Simulated assay, not measured.
Amino acid sequence: MPILEFSLKANEIILLWDSESYILKHGLNVIQQQSVLSGIWSEYAIENMIYQIEELLESEPALRQVQGQAVTSDPMMTLLSQLFFQNSSAIDRVQLEHAFNDFVDHLNHYLHQVEQGQQQVFVYFVMIREMMHHLKIQEILIKSLLL
């Protein structure tokens, strides 16, 4: 089974799977700008992100075949692991869903755990969650933490 490699960047999302490269039209900046209106994080902003990300992922039909493991070396994934997963180098669906629910329930707490300029990590988190759901990813490995 091929492993999905991904990089979620400010201006583009790159997915490599089964010897094919997919570059999605929007990056994290666009998702954040269209969801976090006036810089205000809320459950509504998160719901809006989820909707946008679902649309983005569904725009590439070939990705419906993805399943299994994913791997990334994104620095933002390392920060996410520090914030929610005790620096774990592997995150499974159950861990991710538990952490995501905790994030939503304690949004203000987590917003104060990072600097204003690092809040895009939460857009990254929503993207990762939706990737796990829509692309049937069971586990994400973080290359930078595996070394």
Rank of each mutant, 00 (worst) to 15 (best):
M127G: 07
L57G: 01
F84S: 03
R129S: 10
L80N: 08
Q69F: 15
E60W: 05
G39I: 06
D105A: 15
S42A: 05
A90D: 05
N29G: 02
R129H: 12
F125Q: 06
D92M: 05
M127P: 00
H109I: 07
Y22F: 15
M49V: 09
E115M: 14
I31S: 13
I23Q: 15
D92G: 07
I23L: 14
Y51G: 02
E20P: 00
H98V: 08
F84E: 03
E97I: 09
F125W: 06
Q67F: 06
L37Y: 06
Q67V: 01
S59V: 03
V36L: 01
F103Q: 02
M127K: 02
I31G: 06
F125C: 11
D74I: 01
L111S: 09
P75A: 13
I50Q: 15
D102C: 10
T78D: 10
V126A: 07
I91V: 15
D74T: 08
G39D: 03
E54D: 15
H26D: 14
I23N: 13
V71I: 15
V126W: 01
T78C: 13
M49K: 08
L63H: 03
L63Y: 01
Y51N: 10
V114G: 04
M76F: 10
L37N: 00
E55C: 14
Q34P: 05
T78M: 11
D18A: 12
E55W: 08
P61G: 02
V66D: 08
G117I: 00
H98R: 07
I46N: 05
W41R: 00
Q120P: 04
I46Q: 02
T78W: 06
I50C: 13
Y22R: 10
N87P: 00
A90W: 00
F122G: 00
G39K: 09
L79A: 01
L107A: 01
S59L: 08
S88I: 03
N87V: 00
L83H: 03
G39R: 08
V121F: 04
M127H: 04
H106V: 01
Q65C: 09
P61A: 09
T78E: 15
R93V: 13
E58C: 13
S88D: 11
E47W: 03
Q113N: 12
N29Q: 13
H106Y: 08
N48L: 12
V121E: 03
M49A: 08
S21D: 13
I31A: 11
L63Q: 02
I53S: 04
Q67N: 12
P75W: 06
K25I: 10
V126R: 04
E60N: 11
A70P: 03
E47I: 02
I40G: 00
A99W: 03
L28V: 08
Q86Y: 05
V123L: 08
Q95I: 03
V114K: 07
Y124G: 06
A70M: 09
L63T: 00
H26S: 14
K25G: 15
P75K: 13
Q120K: 12
Y110T: 03
Q69C: 14
S73N: 15
H109D: 06
S21A: 14
N87K: 11
F84C: 06
H112I: 04
A45Y: 05
Y22G: 04
N87S: 11
D102G: 09
Q34I: 00
G117C: 07
Q113S: 13
F85D: 07
A99L: 09
V104R: 14
D18W: 05
V126S: 08
L80M: 12
V94P: 06
M127C: 13
S59K: 00
A90F: 10
